[in-house]
Design a binder for these strands. Structure first.
Lengths: 201, 201
DNA sequence: TATTATAATGACTTAAAAGTCATAATACAA
DNA sequence: TTGTATTATGACTTTTAAGTCATTATAATA
C-alpha cells in the first residue's frame, strides 16, 4: 500500500465531495477516481477496497467532529453548561457540513453498504460519543444537577438522537442554510427539552 | 399486472421474513422468489420492480403499526395519558416485530435503496405519524398541560426519535427479547424524559 | 371436450460496478 | 546517465443481480 499522504487525502476529500453531490449509494470507484483526477487502479493503491474507503470517510469526519466538541466542552464547567456547549457545537458542525449530513440523515443512511467489520467500528464511534455525554450526565447526577433514574449512557444516546432529529426536522422544512439565530434557538430548544421536557412546570 | 391477493401477500410476507433473516441489502429478487416457492418472473407479475416491492413492504408495515397506535391512543383522554399509551404501544410493536426493526434500526437503514419517489412516500409516512403526535401535543398545549414554546410537529419528531433510540439502545445492549416489565419501564422512562427532562425538579 | 385466456416459469439478456494486472511513467540512486 | 524501484494507468475480467420473454401449465368458458 502506497503512502503518499497528499494523494490519500485527495481521494478522501474527493469521495466526501461526491457523497455530498450524489450520495453514498451512487458512489462508484470509477467516479471517485474521476473526481480525484486519477486512475481507478490508483485508488486501490491507497485503499484496500470500497468498504475501507467509505469507512475512512466516515471515521475521519467523526474524529474531526468529536475533537471540536470535546475541546469546546472542556472550556465549560457544570453539567448544564457543558451540555449546552455540546449541543451548540454539534449543531454548528452539522450546519457547517450540511451537504454531507443532509445525505447521511435524509437521502440515505449510514451503514447499509458497509461490511460487518466497518459496521462495528461505526457503532463503536457512536458509543464513544454517547459515553462522553454519559460522563457529563453522570457528573451532573453526582453533583445533584440531574435526575439519577436515567442511565447516563442511555441519556447520551437520547441526546445525540435529539440533536440529529432537530437537524432532520430543519432540513425537511427547508431550513438548510445556517442562520446564527436559528442555531442559537435550536440549541436552547434541545437543551430545554432534554433538561425540562415539554411539561409545564 | 396479475391480481391474486394471496400470492401478492405471499410475496410480501416472504420478503419480510427474508429481510429479518438477511437484511435489506442482501435481498435479491431471486431469493424472494425462492423463499416464496415461485419463479422469479412471477414476482414481476405482482410487483413492477424491486423498488415497488420494498416500498410495499415498508408501507404495509407502517400502516399496521400506525393503525394499532391510533386505536390505542383513541381510548385515552388527556395529553399525558395519550402520549403514554402511544409510547407503550409503539415500543410493544417494535418488540413484537423486533427482528424486522433490528434490521431497520441497526444493521442497515431505511431508504438507501429506494428510488426518489419511494423515498418521498417514506418521508410522508413519517410525517403522518409525527403530525399525529403533534396534534396530541397541540391539544395538551391548549389545555395547559404542555409548554407552548416547542412547535408541536417538531415535538412529534423528537418523541418518535426518542422511542426509536430507546429501542436501539436496548438492542445494542443485548436486551432483545421482550420482557413486559422492561417495556413498561422503558415507556415510563421515555414519557418521563419527554415530559420532564433529566433535570431535578 | 376443445378453445381461449390467464398465470407461471426459468433460462437468458443486460447492465453496472468492483476489483485486477500487464504495461507505462516517474522518481530516485548509483 | 543509466538502471532500479516506486507509483500510476485504464482496458479487461469477474461477479452479481435486475429485469425480460418465449414457452409451458393451468383455469375458465363454450
Amino acid at each position: 500500500m502506497v503512502e503518499n499522504i497528499d494523494k490519500y487525502e485527495l481521494i478522501l476529500s474527493s469521495s466526501r465531495k461526491l457523497i455530498e453531490e450524489i450520495g453514498f449509494s451512487a458512489l462508484t470507484m470509477d467516479k471517485v477516481a474521476q473526481k480525484a483526477g486519477i486512475a481507478k487502479g490508483t485508488v486501490y493503491l491507497y485503499f484496500k477496497d470500497k468498504d475501507e474507503l467509505l469507512e475512512k470517510v466516515l471515521s475521519s469526519g467523526f474524529e474531526r467532529m468529536f475533537e471540536r466538541i470535546q475541546n469546546r466542552v472542556a472550556k465549560e464547567s457544570g453539567g448544564i453548561n457543558k451540555l449546552k456547549a455540546l449541543i451548540g457545537e454539534n449543531i454548528n458542525h452539522i450546519y457547517e457540513n450540511r451537504y454531507f449530513f443532509k445525505t447521511i440523515f435524509l437521502d440515505e443512511v449510514n451503514v447499509v453498504f458497509l461490511k460487518k467489520k466497518s459496521k462495528e467500528s461505526f457503532n463503536l464511534r457512536r458509543k464513544r460519543y454517547t459515553d462522553f455525554i454519559g460522563e457529563i450526565i453522570k457528573s451532573g447526577i453526582d453533583s445533584g444537577e440531574f435526575r439519577s433514574d436515567l442511565y447516563p449512557a442511555k441519556g447520551g444516546y437520547m441526546l445525540v438522537s435529539l440533536i440529529k432529529t432537530g437537524a432532520i426536522y430543519n432540513f425537511l422544512n427547508d431550513r438548510f442554510e445556517p442562520v446564527p439565530e436559528m442555531i442559537e434557538k435550536d440549541t436552547e430548544e434541545i437543551l430545554n427539552l432534554f433538561l425540562h421536557g415539554i411539561s409545564v412546570k
